[in-house]
């Protein structure tokens, strides 16, 4: 049985852990708010680029631009995997890693681009997959330049290095307590057809083709930016939930330990009384 003093130190340490998890929860909650508002601010930009691309595609459905062209034989694949830079966010990274392993089982030769330190550390040690590039520590200071850099790298893979497809794997932000794993092709660009009837009578300068090319590149840029924002919001959401339950568990643990402590204390007192009583009895 644990001594009274042991239990007491244990209670103190659980209490300070609880304080830390509680503080982390608050921090995650405020970061989540920021991340959510950034998603909202980025939306008009992404929507407009998307709309322009859909219009162009509709008008020019036979475009042979390589960005839009699906290849028949897919041999050379690359996948971009978004994880977080920091841990303590529940199953956020684990879910991605599990999905990635399934993917690797199907595509053993796929090359990997890691965004986020957690994924990079794991895949480097535990898989034989070829990691061709990694972006670490970018979620601390999110800005559009980073997403541009990643987008340019991926475009280069696709257009110059002859990769047949580039896919992305990330956590989509559903709500503060829910994340969805998404895996989808990024390149070539697949444009969904909108049913909406709109006048497509635009004059394009210098030409449809040049605009498609530039717009396609911009679209990739915007997609990467959006995914980064989603992933970081999802990360904060996951961390908030994880820290919330950690705080709750700590509170439960403290309750249990306090109960044990009181029991032990009482047992000691009872024992002492019995000793004194029996001592007094012996003197009679």
């Amino acid at each position: 049985m644990q001594s009274i003093r042991d239990i007491k130190t244990r209670i103190e340490s659980v209490k300070s852990t609880k304080q830390i998890t509680n503080a982390m929860k608050m921090v995650a909650a405020s970061k989540l708010r920021n991340a959510q508002s950034r998603i909202l601010q980025a939306r008009p930009y992404a929507d407009h680029v998307n709309k322009m691309l859909v219009d162009l595609r509709k008008r020019n459905s036979t475009s042979q631009n390589p960005l839009l062209l699906e290849k028949e034989n897919i041999d050379k694949k690359a996948i971009v995997i978004f994880t977080s830079d920091r841990g303590l966010c529940g199953s956020f990274n684990y879910n991605i890693i599990r999905r990635a392993k399934e993917y690797f089982a199907e595509n053993p030769s796929a090359d990997v681009i890691c965004v986020g330190k957690k994924g990079y550390d794991y895949f480097r040690k535990h898989t034989s997959q070829n990691i061709i590039k990694q972006y670490l520590g970018i979620f601390n200071e999110m800005n559009f330049n980073v997403s541009r850099e990643i987008a340019n790298y991926l475009l280069n893979l696709f257009l110059v290095e002859n990769y047949d497809t580039v896919e992305v794997l990330y956590n989509e932000f559903k709500s503060a307590i829910q994340q969805n794993i998404v895996i989808k092709p990024l390149l070539p660009i697949i444009i969904e057809n909108s049913e909406e009837e709109r006048s497509l009578d635009f004059i394009y300068e210098p030409s449809d083709d040049v605009v498609i090319e530039e717009l396609g590149k911009k679209y990739i840029n915007v997609e990467i930016w959006r995914i980064m924002l989603e992933s970081s919001a999802a990360e904060q959401g996951a961390r908030m939930t994880a820290m919330d339950s950690a705080t709750e568990n700590a509170a439960e643990m403290i309750e249990m330990l306090t109960l044990n402590y009181n029991r032990a204390r009482q047992a000691a007192i009872t024992k002492e009384i019995i000793e004194i009583a029996s001592g007094a009895e012996a003197l009679k």
């Binding site: 635009f202 004059i203 394009y204 605009v211 530039e214």
Partner: peptide, 15 residues
Amino acid sequence: GDFGVSENHTPFITI
């Protein structure tokens, strides 16, 4: 080249 837009400009997209 630079271009001006006033009322009733024709639908136009450029870089």
